[in-house]
Structures are given as C-alpha cells and as structure tokens.
C-alpha cells in the first residue's frame, strides 16, 4: 500500500489541516510507514474468523430515559472562543 502526495493533500483537507509543500512530503513518507506497519495485520489468515465490531466483548449498555437539568447557559458557553449573550459564535458558514 502506498499513499501518494495527492492522497495526503486530500486527507489534510478533510481534517482541515493546511500543510506547506515540504510538510506534505514529510507526512506522505511518515503516513506510508504507518500504513506499512499496520499492513502486517493483513498477513494472518482470517478467512474463518468472524469480523469484530468492537474491542470489548460486551453489548447492550443502556441508560433509562430520564432527563436531568441542563448545564446553565453560562457554563455551556464558558469555554467558547467566541460567543454572545446566548450562543456560540463561529465564522459565517455558507450553506
């Protein structure tokens, strides 16, 4: 498996990372070595093994449907980089 520079450019865009050209080269190399390392998992024969959906083998962990009081608005907004009286503020996103 070999990632190209274009693949890394795309992944960087999806992660909203702005990379300089030399960084693209560095990360393409680093990501490829990570991919190669993980590719060792392809080696064992898994034909007769059921796919694993989760790392721990427990299931059906539920809570009952009961509401508790909300955080106060002040608490909710307290870590916001930018806010007004009642909301988080983000740069206008065109939709």
């Amino acid at each position: 498996m070999s990632l190209t520079r274009d693949d890394v450019t795309k992944v960087a865009f999806l992660a909203r990372l702005q990379l300089e050209p030399h960084e693209l080269d560095t990360f393409t190399g680093q990501l490829n070595s990570i991919m190669d390392f993980v590719a060792q998992l392809q080696e064992p024969d898994t034909a007769d093994i059921e796919p694993l959906a989760h790392g721990v083998e427990i299931h059906n962990v539920f809570r009952e449907d009961r509401a508790v009081p909300s955080l106060t608005r002040e608490a909710a907004l307290s870590n916001a980089p930018k806010r007004n009286q009642e909301s988080f503020l983000v740069p206008v996103v065109l939709d």
Binding site: R63, R66, A67, V68, P69, S70, L71, T72, R73, A76, L77, E86, S87, F88
Partner: peptide, 17 residues
C-alpha cells in the same frame, strides 16, 4: 446523554457535557 429534548427553549439552555 441526559439533558432534555424540548423544542423552542432559549438557545443553549438544554445541553450537557
């Protein structure tokens, strides 16, 4: 999570971590 589900409350008054 356990905060409520009402419609029409003032903004950001129905949240939890």
């Amino acid at each position: 999570s356990a905060s409520g589900t009402a419609f029409g409350l003032p903004p950001n008054t129905q949240t939890d971590p």
